[in-house]
Structures are given as C-alpha cells and as structure tokens.
Computed example of a mutant assay.
Amino acid sequence: MISALLMILSPVPAGQVFTCTPTHVWDGDGPIWCEEGPRIRLSGIAARELDGTCSPGHPCPAASAEAARDALVNLLGTRTGVGRHGHILVTGPALTCRSDGSGGGDRTAAWCVSPRTGDINCAMVRGGWALRWERFWRGHRCP
C-alpha cells in the first residue's frame, strides 16, 4: 500500500517508460491525471495558464488557455464532464509515456504517445496550442 501511494505522489524516474490512462486534465500542458497514479506535465512545451497568463520566463502561445486545454482533451480522448475542482474529465486509450523526470512537485515531466493521435507533445505545438520550450525540448523529434 505504501509503495503504491509513493508511486502516486512521486515523479516517475527519468528514462522510465510507463502507461498513462488519462482521467483528468487541468490545462494545455498538464497536469494529466493517470488512472495508474502519475500526474503528467507534458515535457518541452508551454501553454497558457487557465487565467490566460503565461508564467514569467515561459514561452507564451497565442492560443487561449481554454482552447489549449480542450485541444489536449480531444487528443487524449473524449470529454466526459467536469470534476468538482474544475478539472476536465476525460476517457481515452492508454498512452505510452517516457519520463523526463520531475515536472515540479509530484508531477512527472513526460513525452507521451497516444495510439489514436500519435505524439501528444508535438501535436500541441503543431496545432498552435502550445509552444516548444527550447530549454526543455532536448532534441525531441516530432514524427
């Protein structure tokens, strides 16, 4: 029980490949809550915060926060509702993710691929909902 709780509260170690079945989304670059426990912050990209701002020092895309969040939900699966704290509930296929280490706090920074829509991080940039964050992009290649 304690090791399962630690997996939920701790970032997945860098380099580890893991499965994420998405259940909730906050904004356009995460977090994405996974049925398996981790919370993902998409690596190498930046989207607007839900209040419409961009954090100092972060790339700032033109797309609104709501457009970015909704695009991420659509890439992951189907919107099924809104949680009591404002998270968008989503159901979709399991993603295959590779950890980039800590995404701040208890989040895992990760590169994720959906069997339905491909590389999620790249799709967010291609759609204009997020910008590449060169500092964290680390030579990632989009298919």
Rank of each mutant, 00 (worst) to 15 (best):
L9F: 15
R138F: 10
E49F: 08
E134L: 10
G52K: 05
G81S: 09
A110D: 03
C34L: 09
P59R: 07
L5E: 06
E36A: 13
C97V: 01
H58S: 14
N121V: 06
R132K: 04
L6R: 06
G83L: 00
L50M: 08
L75Y: 10
V73Y: 11
C122V: 08
L50I: 02
P22H: 15
G127K: 06
T96G: 11
R138W: 01
A123W: 04
P31H: 03
M1C: 13
C54S: 01
R69S: 02
H24P: 11
M7Y: 13
A65M: 13
T91G: 15
S55V: 09
A110C: 00
W111E: 06
P56D: 12
V113S: 02
G28K: 09
L72K: 04
R141A: 08
W33R: 02
F18C: 07
L89Y: 13
R84Y: 15
W111I: 02
G30Y: 03
T117C: 10
V73H: 12
T23Y: 14
V125G: 06
R126L: 11
C34I: 09
D119P: 04
G30C: 05
P59G: 05
D51C: 01
R41C: 08
E134S: 14
I40T: 05
S99C: 02
P38V: 12
W111L: 09
P38H: 08
R135N: 01
P93V: 10
P31T: 04
C34H: 11
H24M: 13
D100E: 13
T117I: 06
P38R: 03
R39E: 15
R116M: 02
G127C: 02
A123K: 00
D27T: 03
G127N: 02
V90E: 15
I45A: 06
E36C: 13
G139F: 10
H85E: 15
G28H: 05
W26V: 12
L76N: 07
P22G: 14
F18Y: 14
A130N: 03
P56H: 07
L95E: 11
A68P: 04
A94D: 14
S43P: 12
V25L: 01
G28R: 01
C112I: 01
I2Q: 02
S64K: 09
I8E: 11
C97M: 11
W33H: 02
I8Y: 08
C34N: 09
G118Y: 00
P61V: 03
I120K: 05
L95A: 09
D119I: 00
H58Q: 15
M1H: 08
G128S: 01
F136T: 06
E49S: 14
I120M: 00
W33F: 06
E134P: 12
